[in-house]
Design a protein around this nucleic acid. Structure first.
Lengths: 194, 194
DNA sequence: CTCCTGCTGACACGACTGTTTCAGTACGAG
DNA sequence: CTCGTACTGAAACAGTCGTGTCAGCAGGAG
């Protein structure tokens, strides 16, 4: 589909990886070329040459973050035994301390794409919702998957995980939030009638 | 407690209100003094005089947004008949089209305070979590309110609403998200055992 | 050797940033 | 009237922003 760069040029991916590590620590909001270039041992000139302009760099960083995201959720499609199990597995990943910088970056990009629908952030929030809903759909058993109730169930699963993540990132209270997620997992296992 | 400004000076509140309306439309991320001053018929000089510096203005805007937030959830403490009812009432407010600018601003401030814990955004995310949890606690019946399970239930209620809000802001699919919230309301009404 | 492609350094341009300085004006209190 | 408080305008400060320009380097292909 989008065959803009068939061979991203070793140097480009190398610098992108370094810039990605920098963005994980400093955020994307007030990212500017000179500081990031200095931090990764490059220059604004080179970043412009490789990514076209700042928007190109930001887009590449967002795409790079999405790779990490997809690398986490895609294996679920075969390993999870059902929607409750998928939610449980995702939560253990979300709650891990080492993923917090990535998740903060994710939250930042998500919110920004809501406020500023144009530019480099365009469509980030919507695409990530669709990514997760599709994966959760793949985790549901066949009769349920295609029903309206199946759609509602995975929407609820996604909402709970996202909300719990926001809570965890803000308060760091892993125990309280984990208990809420576990309760939801149990409820998804034996749901009430609609 | 914080008696910094006993009489906020009519002119100050007037300009704050105008700047707040501007921020609702343009976001807080790349807010700068000259454009906002021009939009509200003022000057950077006056904003500096009244709010000290840019951080003071942003803090004032965040506090102003929080007033709107509290004005919505506080009445629940007396009107809601229980946690499920509270969730249901909050959702109808969150889902209203006219509140979307405020909620986008809220999401932006929340994410920003996660990435940049210092500065004007400091503590926004955490305080809003605590605000809501306290209100939901006040909506719970007495035996449940003080138990660990009560805390878990309102944490789950909050997470679901926040996650559903994120979904709605990104996709605009009010039907699908509303169905998920309603399912959660029903589940909170007849919850499974822990 | 030459040429060409990928990458890089140094520097300057105009625009914009938050903030400061110096100057006021309007107005109620005494 | 005089004074002090609240507010405002014009201009400039030093700094950073993204970007463009002109040059030059390495190294493989012919």
């Amino acid at each position: 589909m989008t065959a803009k760069e068939p061979t991203p040029s070793a140097r480009k991916t190398e610098l992108l990886e370094a810039a990605y590590a920098y963005a994980l620590q400093h955020g994307l909001a007030d990212l500017s070329l000179r500081p990031v270039a200095a931090a990764i041992g490059s220059s604004p000139r080179v970043l412009m040459f490789l990514f076209g302009n700042k928007d190109g760099l930001v887009k590449a960083l967002l795409a790079r973050a999405r790779v990490d995201e997809l690398a986490m959720i895609e294996p679920l499609q075969s390993s999870a035994t059902g929607l409750p199990d998928a939610v449980s597995q995702v939560w253990t990943w979300l709650a891990a301390e080492e993923h917090r910088p990535l998740l903060r970056l994710w939250a930042e990009a998500y919110a920004r794409s809501l406020v500023e629908p144009d530019g480099a952030w365009a469509g980030f929030a919507e695409s990530t919702v669709n990514d997760w809903l599709a994966v959760f759909a793949a985790c549901q058993p066949e009769p349920e998957r295609t029903t309206d109730r199946g759609l509602t169930l995975r929407t609820l699963a996604l909402a709970t995980l996202r909300g719990a993540l926001l809570d965890l990132l803000a308060t760091g209270d892993a125990e309280r939030v984990a208990a809420a997620v576990e309760l939801q997992v149990a409820a998804l296992g034996s749901p009430v009638e609609s």
